[in-house]
Design a protein around this nucleic acid. Structure first.
Lengths: 216, 216, 216, 216
DNA sequence: AATGAATGAGATTTCATTCAT
DNA sequence: CATGAATGAAATCTCATTCAT
């Protein structure tokens, strides 16, 4: 795979963080170096894929020595998990901001169709295939996010759904279409994109007519 | 699968083989090992992710020596590309079958929401981020598939779309929702799934009412 | 060494040609393919060094399949030896032509200082370090050549050497200076070259004055 | 040899090390392994040719693990370059010593005709054909050496040259003859050697008569 | 006369990780 | 806090060679 070597899963399903907490610093850290490593790791994952995100590569990106990465994150999986958690927290904040904005539904849609966080999320989904800790974290985060959205959508749209849709279903549908647009867009696929966008917007207009006025 | 009489791809990548590409024997004897490798590679990618699909790992899965994998596929990328192309051809066939069935729209929807081909497709999308050859192939295939679907949808549903939807947009929307269901389902996320499914089916019922009778 | 892998010397000091003569064709062959392989091998050795001249690489250069190279030359060393022998024969011819020309001494000097055959010769000398068969062949050829030259120089210049020089010594001196010029010239070293050339020519003029007139 | 306080060259080639090159410890502890690798590499190149100098082979010669060789020299080319540079520095020292001796011209001639450093130098010239970094280093070193010699020869012999020879040309001529003697001698070619040696010495006697007395 | 298949060895390089300091 | 040294494992790829056809 030329450069994409699968790391030997020395501790595949191991208690990846708790057991060695005592040994080395793990978990949120306020130091600059810690953030620097996460930034570098995110960059590498985004640009070259999770398989390229070795501790050496991350250290190089950060301008640090590999040993230091291991000092902060005993295991490379720890880096992945920390990057995911930070990214998930950022997504949460963005969604929270969307949901508390003037026009929550459309803000949510814009978030879903936004390309910026998509490549990273996709890498983590692919990664989840063989890093169970990542998979569990994704599920946890995804469930919480959908529940939060569903609650707010219910409160906002209440009885409006006439097509058999429910808040959670609505959230999933928007997310699915948005993600497809973002993912395909990044690959360079554009056929049907404008039409799909227009279709969703027309649909939202029917569901949330009042917001048309308040929308920027 | 073995019906596509795949030829070993040593020829295209090996520098010394250009002169005799045409003479390459493509009988079943040759294809067996070739198909075996592709099967093994697909299995590994599906189960453990593309990053785990090393020539060693693939060979082990196929019960072959690693050297033999390199004999058929000089480069690991060649394996990926061949697996993708074979998978794409299979998808094409499935879609074609769906589109020529009694109830093409719902068959298409069932294909999109089907979990079986999804993990593999996702791996390739992730892989495409840093393997341009894969990316190009995905785009090519995806564009062709969407065009084919749009043409048939147009012919079937014609003026029925009342929401500003168009055939290509419709295809994308169905694909996006289906993929979200499949991907999340595989991860273990289920919130909102039944509702989303019901919603799509209700929508399809409004668009393709006649088919309700013919559907199983 | 990235691409320069030392071939495992499976049969290092083995009777590299005699023993398997019966098995496969070896030794001078008049077929086109045989010459094609030698041409390709020479090209590769010249351009990329002897270490890059693998049977695969040679086959690629010749547009043939690797198996065919092995069919003509059971061992890669056989290729080297054949290339060397052919090159040596060509050098012999060139020297013979020089020695029978109007101005043999200067023609010999021009041959020595000629760059064209130098890179190849150098590769063979380097190769001789660990392929004893090559080394033996070089010594044999070199001794014969020097003897032939010495005989002719003696006949031409006879008693002219006043500096304690003898024909064989004279031949070696010319060869050494010429080779240095050629070798350094190819590397891009030029300091002192014009001066050395002028020096040799002045020397030859003193030794072979008559030829000044006959020289073109 | 260990007196040149060589630093491990991990720094220059390893991407992650730029920041701390200055901090690299260069104490004897570090240098030992480094020098050990260089010694082993030089030995292998000398005995079996540059093509045999794989990281495995070098490690075996040094009694180290192959990984350790890569730790010090990320790339096999780095080993070659380091060996060349060290050898060049040693040559420089030897030449400097020759040039500052009682009888510099004859000492230089003895250096040129010395067999000990010749095999190695030849390997590097052959290597230079397809390793441009090596080639550049050879040219650089060779030019500097010739200039230094020419300057000193001029100062010593000044107007003595009567045959159209100049200091730089003289240096090249001596080097060429000396190298031919050394190289052929190593191969086992001896025809004309004594005569050539006698010829050069007679020539030097005419050029540097005074030294006859001081010479051992 | 020629060639596809196969294979074991080995070369280069990268990795994660440990450890002593 | 941080890091240089070291190492075993693995990944990718190339080789020479054999063999059956």
């Amino acid at each position: 795979m030329s450069g994409l070597t699968a790391r030997p899963c020395t501790a595949p399903a191991a208690p990846y963080a708790q057991a060695m907490t005592a040994k080395r610093r793990i978990g949120p850290d306020t130091s600059e170096t810690y953030a620097l490593i996460l930034d570098a790791a995110e960059q590498v994952i985004r640009d070259e894929g999770y398989a390229a995100a070795s501790s050496r590569r991350i250290a190089a990106q950060a301008g640090l020595k590999p040993s230091l990465v291991h000092y902060y994150f005993p295991t490379t999986d720890d880096v992945f998990l920390a990057v995911f958690k930070r990214g998930a927290a950022q997504s949460d904040a963005m969604i929270e901001q969307a949901l508390t904005s003037d026009d929550p539904i459309r803000a949510l849609w814009r978030f879903f169709a936004d390309t910026s966080r998509n490549a990273l999320a996709l890498e983590f989904v692919a990664l989840a295939n063989h890093r169970k800790a990542i998979g569990a974290e994704i599920v946890k985060h995804s469930d919480a996010m959908r529940a939060r959205q569903a609650a707010l959508i219910e409160q906002l749209l209440g009885q409006r759904f006439g097509d058999g849709a429910t808040p959670a279903g609505f959230s999933l549908v928007l997310a699915g279409i948005g993600r497809a647009l973002a993912m395909e867009g990044e690959l360079g696929i554009t056929a049907g994109h404008d039409e799909a966008r227009a279709f969703v917007e027309a649909w939202l207009d029917r569901l949330v007519p009042a917001a048309i006025d308040t929308k920027s």
